[in-house]
């Protein structure tokens, strides 16, 4: 950690610890605009990159605004992360509870040029997020991949089917509790049915 370049957010967080304002002011114009527009939005500067953290119910409206008013013409990528082993991750100024899944949207403004990343915390029991495929057509296939790999349901998606795995596949392979597969082997002393590697779990291949 010591030789990481100090970014402004870390200094602000230190002030935060020593009794300064509870919610530090965002350093970035765009991030502060988002925080002002979207109720409950948080922000973070991660390795020098602007990140906004936004609840799923506001993300569609925010994305329309970013596209129409702030010239974010391109949705570069939509993906997801399963933080099952990592609930204590850094969530910036986000005030809500950490969730198991996060949808990550990378946006690009070609005119300025600049990037912003949206992190959308998604509930564990019912992972749902509105589709962005009506905002940017490129989100269509990327959301299908996130659904295939994590089982996150993109509400309103026109054709939410698997994309990389076969149609009849069970489970979502990139989830952290998905068994990566185990080959049953028979040991001389242990009797039959002992399994080498990780024990089979949900949707084990």
């Amino acid at each position: 950690m010591s030789d990481r370049p100090t970014d402004p957010s870390e200094e602000i967080h230190e002030q935060d610890g020593s009794g300064a304002p509870a919610v530090p002011a965002p350093p970035d114009d765009l991030v502060s605009e988002i925080c002002a527009r979207v109720p409950g939005a948080g922000w973070e500067i991660s390795c020098g990159q602007s990140v906004a953290i936004c609840a799923p119910e506001h993300v569609e409206e925010l994305c329309f605004w970013l596209r129409d008013e702030r010239s974010f013409d391109m949705c570069v990528d939509v993906t997801a992360v399963d933080y099952l082993d990592h609930w204590d991750r850094s969530m910036g100024t986000w005030a809500g509870e950490p969730t198991r899944y996060e949808v990550v949207v990378n946006l690009l403004d070609l005119d300025t040029p600049r990037r912003i990343r949206l992190r959308v915390p998604v509930d564990e029991d019912e992972p749902r997020c509105p589709t962005l495929s009506y905002v940017w057509a490129s989100a269509d296939a990327a959301e299908r991949e996130a659904f295939d790999m994590y089982g996150i349901v993109f509400d309103g998606h026109p054709n939410l089917t698997r994309i990389l795995m076969p149609d009849d596949w069970e489970g979502h392979p990139l989830r952290k509790d998905y068994a990566i597969g185990a080959i049953p082997v028979t040991f001389k002393e242990g009797g039959e049915g002992q399994v080498a590697g990780r024990p089979p779990g949900p949707g084990g291949a």
Binding site: E124, D125, E126, P127, F147, G151, I152, V153, E170, G171, H172, R175, A182, P184, G193, V195, P200, G201, P202, G203, G204
Partner: peptide, 14 residues
Amino acid sequence: SRARVIPPSVLRPV
């Protein structure tokens, strides 16, 4: 021994 036990949280979205 490799039977799949899928908890509801995995099944529901499908």
